[in-house]
Design a binder for these strands. Structure first.
Length: 87
DNA sequence: GCTGAGCGG
């Protein structure tokens, strides 16, 4: 299977006030985002601090990773890496 | 009103 990226991106270490809309406009210019999902907590109704971003192609997803990995968002460092294809 | 490793529904 070798190294497979996948179109799903795992975005973590976000600020607790960052929303899905923020991620969308931050990851949109790097490629066509087909899906943006911010994981919410059922107890507080706020973000867990991580989410998922999907692109049309793996090359766009990989480009977004290199472009946004370890970048400053909302004054915090965010980690971007391919999500597990455990789906 | 806060916190801070991880892979959601």
């Amino acid at each position: 299977m070798a190294q497979r990226i996948g179109t799903k991106l795992f975005v973590s270490r976000l600020s607790f006030y960052t929303t899905k809309d923020q991620l969308k406009n931050l990851f949109s210019p790097f490629g066509q985002v087909t899906e943006v999902n911010l994981v919410m907590d059922s107890r507080t109704g706020r973000t867990k601090g991580f989410g998922f971003v999907s692109y049309q192609s793996e090359n766009e997803a990989l480009k977004a990773i290199k472009a946004m990995n370890g970048r400053i968002i909302a004054g915090r460092i965010i980690f971007v890496e391919p999500a597990k294809d455990t789906r």
